[in-house]
């Protein structure tokens, strides 16, 4: 049974048709990697899932909730989804710990002590318990992104979305973030990841989606994409990112 389902979804930015007739579903516990050239609509597709972007036509159903319906309470959908941004977007006026406990305390009304206990466990899970009381400015990019992942996990979501989570990182920090994501994937989390890290895709992705010019061009296993991608555009794109 699918937990995310796009049915004939279209979206425009002004005159620019950014998503064209998207039909696509993600099953519970599935890990999907979305690749594609910049401007292909992959980030927009991801941002539609938790309603950071609205769709103009079609249906989008997440965990049984109609995200496209204007009557839907979007906060309810969002509490089921953790989102990790390319630029981390940690709150700079709060410590790592405070970043993590804010939403559980304010949205789910978890008592502070309990929220702190859970946040501490999450920081251990992402490998940086000792950074709990530091502000984002004194953390490295890799540490910041791991705090951001912990923040996303703090609401105990059913789905984690990652928007190019390693693109803003220095090369030596990419793996520490990918390792956390691999653990999460192996733990059974439903994940949709926009990334060009094909090593990550190969390790844990169930399916890879290639997008170009607002359309889903090709869907297949990571092996399929490494061995014999069918579409000419897919091949050209992969030859550029796989050196």
């Amino acid at each position: 049974m699918s937990i995310i389902e796009f049915r004939g979804v279209n979206k425009w930015f002004g005159d620019f048709h950014v998503l064209k007739e998207i039909d696509f579903a993600v099953g519970e516990g599935e890990v999907v990697v979305i690749i594609g050239p910049s401007g292909s609509g992959k980030s927009t597709l991801l941002r539609c899932i938790n309603a950071l972007e609205t769709i103009d036509s079609g249906e989008l159903i997440v965990d049984g909730i109609k995200v496209h319906d204007s009557k839907t309470n979007l906060n309810r959908v969002r509490t089921e989804i953790g989102f990790v941004f390319q630029q981390f977007n940690l709150y700079p006026h709060m410590t790592a710990l405070e970043n993590i406990i804010l939403a559980p305390m304010k949205v789910k009304k978890v008592p502070r002590e309990e929220a702190v206990r859970r946040a501490t466990r999450l920081l251990e899970r992402v490998g940086i318990p000792e950074q709990a009381n530091k502000y984002p400015e004194s953390l490295s990019g890799g540490q910041q992104q791991r705090v951001a992942i912990a923040r996303g996990l703090a609401m105990e979501p059913k789905i984690m979305l990652f928007d190019e989570p390693t693109s803003a990182l220095d090369p030596e920090m990419i793996n520490e973030v990918l390792d956390v994501m691999v653990d999460l994937a192996r733990g059974g989390m439903t994940m949709v990841v926009v990334t060009h890290e094909m090593g990550f895709a190969r390790k844990v992705a169930d399916r890879v989606v290639f997008m170009d010019e607002g359309r889903i061009i090709e869907v297949g296993s990571p092996e399929h994409f490494f061995r014999n991608p069918e579409n000419e555009r897919t091949r050209r794109f992969l030859s550029r990112i796989l050196h």
Partner: peptide, 29 residues
């Protein structure tokens, strides 16, 4: 940065909560 509002909303905070806990404290500084 608009990423701050997005991060707050994405975590399930309402618009008012996002303003109150994330945006306004930063703006105040």
């Amino acid at each position: 940065d608009k990423g701050q509002m997005e991060a707050a909303r994405a975590s399930g905070l309402s618009y008012v909560q996002a303003m109150r806990y994330v945006i306004i404290p930063q703006a105040f500084r």
